[in-house]
Design a protein around this nucleic acid. Sequence first.
DNA 1: TTACTCATGTAAGTAGTTACATGATTCC
DNA 2: GGAATCATGTAACTACTTACATGAGTAA
Lengths: 199, 199
Amino acid sequence: MSLRHALLALLEAGPMTGYELAKQFDQSVAYVWHAQHSQIYTELRRLEGEGLVVAETLARGDRATKRAYTLTPEGLAELRSWVREVEELPAVRDSAYVKATYLEYVSFDEARAQFRAHRAHYEALRDRYELHADQLARRETALLRRRLAGSPGAAHDAIVAFKVHAYRGLIARARTEIEWANRGLELIDRLSDGGASPK
Amino acid sequence: MSLRHALLALLEAGPMTGYELAKQFDQSVAYVWHAQHSQIYTELRRLEGEGLVVAETLARGDRATKRAYTLTPEGLAELRSWVREVEELPAVRDSAYVKATYLEYVSFDEARAQFRAHRAHYEALRDRYELHADQLARRETALLRRRLAGSPGAAHDAIVAFKVHAYRGLIARARTEIEWANRGLELIDRLSDGGASPK
DNA sequence: TTACTCATGTAAGTAGTTACATGATTCC
DNA sequence: GGAATCATGTAACTACTTACATGAGTAA
């Protein structure tokens, strides 16, 4: 359950409404933990029920309302203890790799299409990660600034460095996938060649 | 839904009982798509209901029975069309990376413990992948032999090559994670040093 | 007035997990 | 006789997805 802790971490930067939180989420944590807005609203209610956050109902126009959430001391304690805890990593479940294992069932061209899609996907991801890593390193994101503003100057370097390091890891990961797809395409060239001309 | 297709792919090598299938699964597909045995039995019943496999009830001792599943032509067609289909890759959801982003909440030593655990996990995975890749390359696994025996000699190289390529990808992935963890440990050394001695 | 963004949800369904249950056969 | 392994499931639960619903404020 990373979602609840990701939400607690976002709120550590300061109080936010569900909608604000969802927006911030999409521009930060969502790179490492995706969630739908509907799930965020449900989880916030649950966190409130457990006393890890408190909500304040605010007016929005004359008729409607919104709810601003604030982290409680219990919420902060829960966040810290979660980050401290060493978790079992979940078992692998990667459908692209199971397909790659059974590419003999389709034509070489169809197999190529799989690797090209894989490459394109990770190239796009890599670009987004690089952009975000640069913004973090330059301390340009709104959320990071808010967080830095609320913590002692001596801690700033570590806060930034850990985040940048995580994104550098994601970039390395994406590059590994791109290389794998390229080697897959080369493999298919060799296989389709080998069957046709030489020997 | 890769589980159903992974099961179809296993049955393409020949008929198997649920239990046999579960055992084969653990030694092959589980490296890329983990599933519990309970889930496999449920999924087999569903596949049977959809006509993608047929089951034959066999005696086991005097009183008990077991069910042997065979792939139907519809099942094979479904398998092929799934491998052909280019899927959207699911959004990232990696709790180790969200923790890495928030390591400023814990001590340097606790942060080190996270990276060490991460490294140990992927070292173990890498070793298992390497072993399996070697076995596949030498055509030593029972399942691969069964599959090769049932397909024309000209196709053998491709069948083996695709599987080996998938495992080489997993190995590369594991190595990337190990390097990331090592760089994380170096980062913590720099951060804890920087605060203590120089400047 | 139309479209967009702000804002908050519910409801139904799927995939997967964890724990439990039961009994047969085989090997020591 | 006991332990391991063969063999097949059910039940309750959790996380997440997809689709839907509703309405307010704001800028063109």
